[in-house]
Each structure stands twice: as structure tokens, then as C-alpha cells.
Amino acid sequence: MDVLVNLLSASFYEGLAFGLVAIGVYLTFRVLAFPDLTVDGSFALGGAVAAILIVNDINPWLATVAALGAGLCAGLATSLLNTKLRITALLAGILMMVALYSINLMVMTGRSNIGLLRQVTVFDQVSQFLGIDDKVTLSIIFMVVLTVIILVILNWFLRTEIGLALRATGENEQMVRGLGGNTDMTTVLGVSISNGVVALSGALIAQHDSTADVGMGLGMIVMGLASVIIGEALFHPRGVTAILLAVIGGTFTYRLFINIALRYNWVSAGNLKLITALLVIIALAIPYIQKKMRHEWVPPAARM
């Protein structure tokens, strides 16, 4: 019984914390149709910025907001490469992801790892404030409140006039321009927000785990994509609110499976990324194979 509770509560916390990454991935891949690979870099950037500020005695809340801001800037850079210099989305993201590796090392003053064990984090401050000592309960409460705030904001934003133009940009860019919408602006906005949310997740997870590592972002896109796909497949969401909730639900399900598999030694921690990659490959291949079996014609995949 204890095992089950532990598995569920760990997965619940992780579902929310990594759910923010999945929300970011959903915003770019699904809403904007902008396959943004910056995410691996901006997740670590969030962790790095928060950690370096906290060890330099900056208020952890301020450090977390700064991490979000840094993520916004990373997304801004990627989207400007795409909209102003006309570099394809995929390549712009890869370029930023690689550049961010060096930038993150610079942020962490050349160290590849910063420990936060003896530092006061946002979790410690909330723990003091609420008088809750149990770390698991605390992190769940904290993440629930934060996730609800972010979902409410996004749910509102995607229904505003700008948000509507942003969603339409991902679907029919030509139409949006023809109706007087600035698609460069909506793209920049969407990719920036996405990376801001991802960096926020990085900052929180670094504080929760008491460590920021330059490699902590590795595989975040694939994990986020897996969560989005699972959420869509499980819940068949329709409408903005349902989709946002489904993405969080998908992340929880994904983490639960991973935690069960690790707990019973079905997989080793080292194989996790391979398993995740296979999961995404299978999920992406199934629709093609189904169409092929119905003798439907499927166009070749885009290469650029």
C-alpha cells in the first residue's frame, strides 16, 4: 500500500512539475505548429539561472522569476532566428539548444553542477509559511497551486484576440496575414511564452532536487512530446481548457508508468530516454501504419 501511495504521490508531483514542460511543448508543437527544440536548453537555463542567483543570496522567488525571464529570452532568440532571418523552425531550435549549452555553463560560472542543499529555496519558504514539514505533501500543494495559476492564465490568454490570432497562426498562417494579423509577432510571442514556462519548470525542479545540472534538460522535448501524445490519446480533449488539462494528465500518466517501471526494475534509469524515444516513435508511426493498411496515400514527411 505504501509503495502505491509513494508511486502515486511522486508521479503526481512530477506530472505537475514536468507538466509545465509538456505545456510548453504543446504550445509550440501543437498550437503554433512550430517544432521548437530550444526546450532542452531552456529547461537547463531555468535551472542554471535560478541556482546561480540563489547561491548568490538572491531571494529564491526573484531567482525563479528571473529564470522564467531567461527562458522567455531564449524563446525570443529562436523565434527571431525563424521570423527575421528565415531559418527553419527546427534548425533555429537546434542552434539555440546548442548555443544554450555553452550559455548555461557560463551562467553557472563554468561549473557543470550547482548544489542547493544548504540554500533556502521557494519550497523551503512555502514550507515555513504553511508549516508543512512533509516534503512530498508540500511539493504537491505548491505545484498544484502554481499549475492552476498558469493554466488559468493560459486558458484566458488563448481565448483573447491575440491568443486567437496565435492559434490561427499555427493552423493557417496565410489566412491570419490576410486578415491583418502579424504572424511574426504571434510566433515570437508563442515560442517565447513556451520557453518561459519550460524554464520556470527547470527552475522549480532544480530547487526541488537541490541541484542544477548543465545536462538536466537532455531529452525534455521528447518527454514533453510523449506526455502531449499520451494526454491526447487518453482523453481525446476538445477545446482549449480540456487540452491543457489533458496535457497535464498525460504527463502524470507518463511519469506513473516510468516510476512503476523503475520501481520494479523493468527498466534501468539509463534506458529511460531510449524507452521514451521508442514510445514517441511508436505513437507517431501508428497513424501512418493504420492509413497504409487502409490503402490510403500518405505524403512523404517534410524534411525542412
Binding site: 484566458w156 481565448r159 483573447t160 484576440e161 491575440i162 486567437l164 490570432a165 489566412m175 486578415l179 491583418g180
Partner: peptide, 16 residues
């Protein structure tokens, strides 16, 4: 809603 805002600044009020 998208069409109606042609030529106007798109803001942060709910679109419909």
C-alpha cells in the same frame, strides 16, 4: 472574430 479585427489592434480582451 479573427476577421472582424482586420485593421484593428488585437488586444487582451476575450475574442468572442
Amino acid at each position: 472574430s479573427l476577421a472582424m479585427l482586420r485593421g484593428q489592434a488585437r488586444g487582451l480582451s476575450i475574442a468572442t
